[in-house]
Structure formats: C-alpha cells, structure tokens
C-alpha cells in the first residue's frame, strides 16, 4: 500500500508532542521550588507546611524502623549542608550512600522534612 501523504494535523501534532516532552525533560513541568536551607536552619518553624524540591546526595542513614520508614541525612548539592529527611517505607525506595536524588519534600510539624516523592538524578 502506498504511503499516504502526512496530513496537516499529523504534521502539527508531532512537533507539539516533542515540545511537550522537551518541556517535561527540562523541568518546566515541576511544581516545587528549591529548599531554602539557610532559612530552614535558622527558623525551621517558619517553613512548616511548605513543599519544596531538594536535590541532595545520600550521606548517611540515621535511623530505620520497619514499617515506618527511615531517617536519612542528605547533603544538599547546592549549599553543601546536611539535612535530615524522612522517607517512608511505603515509597519502597532503595537508597545507597552517595546516590543523588531530587526529593519533593514537605516541611511538617517540628521541621521534619518529609519526602513525598524522590527521583534519582
């Protein structure tokens, strides 16, 4: 069967899809803003309830309780500061020291950085 000539709609849809993929690939589609490390260290209570995005390297596992989750000390890539984050077991993440991730975190009561989602960089 002879190839049908590309329709106008096809010709418009394909570039649009590529553009969307590129946007997603470059992060234009992420909702969190960078975590303010300095502000958090000086006044963690002021950040309670906020959602941020944090890129950091796994530094040390501080504590783990089965069925609850683990406390991980991560070193931020931008400020080189160590911060504790909680990753629930329900996320079923396999974490190793020195792995870099992008964490989507929520500042909970008491200044706990609760990882909502993580993505390996």
């Amino acid at each position: 069967m002879p190839l049908l000539p590309m329709s106008f709609a096809n010709r418009f849809f394909i570039p649009a899809a590529l553009a969307a993929l590129l946007f997603l690939a470059t992060g234009c589609g992420r909702s969190g803003e960078p975590f303010p490390v300095g502000a958090f260290l000086s006044a963690p209570d002021n950040l309670q309830g906020n959602r941020y995005e944090l890129e950091a390297e796994i530094d040390q596992q501080l504590h783990w309780r089965e069925g609850v989750g683990r406390l991980i000390a991560v070193r931020t890539l931008r400020d080189d500061a160590r911060l504790p984050v909680f990753i629930a077991d329900s996320m079923k993440a396999n974490l190793l020291v020195a792995q870099r991730y992008r964490f989507e975190i929520t500042v909970r009561k008491g200044g706990l950085l609760y990882v909502e989602r993580l993505e390996k960089l």
Binding site: P44, A73, G111, L112
Partner: peptide
C-alpha cells in the same frame, strides 16, 4: 533546646550541623 521542646526534627538538623 529543640530536643527539650520535643521539636526533634529541628534538633536533629542542628545536631547534623554540629557534626558537620
């Protein structure tokens, strides 16, 4: 101080900073 106030996460952060 945070630990005393049972603000453990903040306390944990400060301990990590001190350990740094």
């Amino acid at each position: 101080r945070y630990e005393t106030d049972q603000r453990y996460a903040a306390s944990l952060t400060q301990f990590l900073a001190a350990q740094d």
